[in-house]
C-alpha cells in the first residue's frame, strides 16, 4: 500500500545541509504493523511525514496505492491526509480549547460533515478507546494516557487506511505506554489496519510484525522480523 523508492530529503540550514533521508526504499503492505527504530536524528520522523503525505521528498518516488504522490500539490496532499492517513504524535497535539469530543470530530469538520454525524462518530470512537465518560473534558483535564487515546480516536475518525504513530508512548510512563501499544495492536489485529510506529522503546517494537532499523537517513538492515507476540 505504501512504496518508497530511493527517497531522499534534505534540510538547508544556512550554509550546511542536513541530509535527513539519503536514498531509502521501503515497502509497507496492507495490514502490516511496522516499527521504525533508530537513534535520534536518524530521520524516523522525516520518513513518517513522507509516508503520511505531510511532506514530499526531494528525490525519489512515493507510491500510495500505486499512485505517485511526489508531485502532488498542497491541496491534493491535504486530501490524502484527510482521507487515508491517521496521525498520532508523541506530544498528542490536541487542541486545548476543544473538548475530547470536538477534538476527535475536528477532522470531519474539514470534510464538511454535519455536526450531529461528527459527534456521533466521535463519541463511538471515544467509547472504543475507553473514554466514553470523558467526552466534555478539555485536554488539560485529562491524563497523558487519556490524551493519547483521544488523539488515537481522532486519527481513526476519517477511517484511514494507515495509522502513523511517531513515538506514541514517548511521553507516557511504561504502564500507560503499554496500554496504548495494546490499543494500537488491537486495531491491527481486529481491524486489519496498517500501522507504522516510530519508537525508541524495544518493548514497543515487539508489538510490531516487522522492525525497520534506521541509521543516518538509511535503513540499515532492510526489514527484520518483529519479536514476541506476532
Amino acid at each position: 500500500m505504501v512504496e518508497l523508492q530511493n527517497v531522499a530529503k534534505q534540510y538547508k540550514m544556512g550554509e550546511t545541509t542536513v541530509r535527513a533521508l539519503r536514498g531509502l526504499d521501503l515497502n509497507i503492505n496492507d495490514g502490516d504493523f511496522v516499527a521504525i527504530v533508530g537513534p535520534s536524528g536518524s530521520g524516523k520522523s522525516t520518513l513518517m511525514h513522507i509516508i503520511g503525505a505531510l511532506d514530499i521528498p526531494d528525490e525519489g518516488r512515493v507510491l500510495l496505492d500505486g499512485k505517485d504522490i511526489s508531485d502532488y500539490d498542497e491541496n491534493e496532499l491535504a486530501d490524502l491526509r484527510g482521507n487515508k492517513v491517521g496521525f498520532v504524535f508523541q506530544t498528542f497535539n490536541l487542541i486545548h480549547t476543544l473538548s475530547s469530543l470536538d477534538n476527535v470530530a475536528l477532522p470531519l469538520t474539514f470534510h464538511g460533515i454535519g455536526k450531529s454525524e461528527r459527534e456521533e462518530r466521535a463519541a463511538e470512537l471515544l467509547e472504543m478507546v475507553g473514554l466514553s465518560d470523558r467526552l466534555t473534558h478539555k485536554p488539560a483535564e485529562l491524563s497523558g494516557g487519556e490524551q493519547q487515546r483521544v488523539s488515537i480516536a481522532r486519527a481513526l475518525i476519517n477511517d484511514p487506511d494507515i495509522l502513523l504513530a511517531d513515538e506514541p508512548t514517548g511521553n507516557l510512563d511504561s504502564d500507560t505506554g503499554k496500554d496504548i501499544m495494546e490499543l494500537i495492536k488491537g486495531l491491527n489485529r481486529d481491524r486489519g489496519m496498517t500501522i507504522v510506529v516510530v519508537t525508541h522503546n524495544p518493548r514497543d517494537a515487539e508489538y510490531a510484525d516487522s522492525i525497520v532499523n534506521m541509521i543516518d537517513g538509511k535503513i540499515s538492515n532492510g526489514e527484520s522480523e518483529g519479536g514476541g507476540d506476532g
Binding site: E74, A78, D79, R81, F87, N93, L94, P107, F110
Partner: peptide, 16 residues
C-alpha cells in the same frame, strides 16, 4: 502554529 499544523495533518486545506 502547532494547532495549524495539526489541522493540516488531519486534512485541512490551505483555503480552510
Amino acid at each position: 502554529t502547532r494547532e495549524i499544523g495539526v489541522m493540516k495533518a488531519v486534512g485541512a486545506k490551505n483555503g480552510q
